[in-house]
Nucleic acid binder design. Sequence first.
DNA 1: GTGAAAGCGCTAACAG
DNA 2: CTGTTAGCGCTTTCAC
Lengths: 340, 340
Amino acid sequence: MPITIKDIAQITGLSKSTISRALNDNPRISKATIEKVKKVADELGFEKNNNATSLSTSKTGNVALIYQNTLDVDGSKAYIDQLFLNLRHELNKQNLDTIICEATEFSKNTSNSIRLIKQRKIDGLLFFHASISREDREYANKMNIPAINIHFKPENNSNIDYFVTDNEYGGYLAGKHLYEKGCRNVLIISCAPNIGQEYSERTLGCIKAYKEQGIKLSEASFLSITTSFFSGYQFAIDNSGFISKFDGIFAQADVIAAGIIAGLKIKNISVPNDIKIIGFDDCLYSTLFTPFITTIHQPKEEITKQSVKRLTELLNTNSTTAGEFVHSLIKPTLLVREST
Amino acid sequence: MPITIKDIAQITGLSKSTISRALNDNPRISKATIEKVKKVADELGFEKNNNATSLSTSKTGNVALIYQNTLDVDGSKAYIDQLFLNLRHELNKQNLDTIICEATEFSKNTSNSIRLIKQRKIDGLLFFHASISREDREYANKMNIPAINIHFKPENNSNIDYFVTDNEYGGYLAGKHLYEKGCRNVLIISCAPNIGQEYSERTLGCIKAYKEQGIKLSEASFLSITTSFFSGYQFAIDNSGFISKFDGIFAQADVIAAGIIAGLKIKNISVPNDIKIIGFDDCLYSTLFTPFITTIHQPKEEITKQSVKRLTELLNTNSTTAGEFVHSLIKPTLLVREST
DNA sequence: GTGAAAGCGCTAACAG
DNA sequence: CTGTTAGCGCTTTCAC
């Protein structure tokens, strides 16, 4: 029923191999033949059977997007789905289809990425995951399947490419901005849990910015709360006295910043008049209400663009990542709105 | 390099076909042989080359999840990603991998689902889409590829299975609840745009509930705003006078309900004391702050469970949907919180 | 510049 | 219960 190169061969009076070559723009085939073949193929609405192609070339045109089983779509990770959307769009532009999959098979507790490689369902891997197992990475390397970490720096930096936000620089930008807005006594609110050190790096950056100005931030002003709107809200209400001793807050997630602002409103503490606050992420929470939140924009466009570029390069040149891993920290940017 | 059934054949001294049969639990093979073969396969970490299997069986073990190119992940569709997460999890349980893909290829403006079918990359289709083209549906039917619409009722109901929230019933539940809470003068806020009629159905249900009580809601109290937090917020602030003539609001999306409550707070109108408000969806917006929002819970668990069940049935029995389409309206439930 | 034939790794008659 | 053989639809030597 579905149409094959054999059909095209019969119609054009050429052989199957010529059809195959023509469709692949093989230079040994004459322009005229190529055009003729493609014309017939188009008219018939022909598409190659991908399984047959994959069987002989070992290339599927698919990449896997692997995410954590525990992925929290609400709350802290509000911006992830935009990243995914971007990513699939970029991949599609490169004629790649995306198989999206949890890291492990729950029932058997076995690795989905290893399975996909073994089944020859994919050509490459994109890990959106803070703690990929060593086995997964090593198997991909061994099998010559390009693998890239996006957004999360893997706990063991060594043997995988990654494209990740430069969190320390983001923290630095936040600190510098608060300083420039006149804040001299800053409260730093990190998020828990701190997988992949991203939050401590943000803290570090902020400290650095103040150090440059000769100000040493006190350890007493670093704390950490759960990454949710409500925990920020409740924190502000319960600790308004403590908070009002500061003139600036660096909340390391917009969702927390939004919660805190809402809580402070209840306590009649005005942002940015009484206290300034800067968030991190640039996700939906930063523009829920007024004041819109000044924040550090995660460079998700750059992350997707660069990682897809790297991936397609590796796929096209058939080269391994092994031996020359790209570890890229991508600089986020300051986005000034109303809360500072 | 990768291991094949040929290797297993050599090791066990059996033929390739016996290995193939044993791995597929063919009843003609003895228990003993099956066990032996599987043991060796396990020890070698063998997985079948899916391309080879697909080529001979025409089954890939993949399904496509097709979504609208314009999918808005923030705002109105906050609960979609939970649905997707659920869906992939259910599919994975059935040993199906998910290829996730936009409906059309932007550059060529051509259908991705038709391409995937032609390329033999998938066995079935899940459309998360309000307006699938006729061509897509018809091609799937013609090629005997099961296709199912989830969440959205297709504009032309006829020739595709669907599993969709019973929106009219949801509206009815909302109306009934407001009535029981004493509201006699209700404002209905629909969302724009109203693709797939879902919002007008919610309105209809609410009207019906009041009609049962002998109350005719006035057309003057039906309006429609953009589906975003801020538009709800601004609406409330700009129209607090108008709003306070009512004792209840049915906001047909939680995100709007949340925005309205925030706006009313600014105007010192208290929810639920001065006015009661019920939302729709049960997404992250309904528990951002106090008062937590009473809402209609979209039955996403049931939608995913039922549609995956139907899909796997069709895949396993190799039957067509054609001629006996399942059109399922799944009842949402009332979730009473603090705003009513 | 094009064709014949073998092969990718499985499955499925057919045979015994 | 197991083996032999052909075939799925492409690609790719090798030949001309």
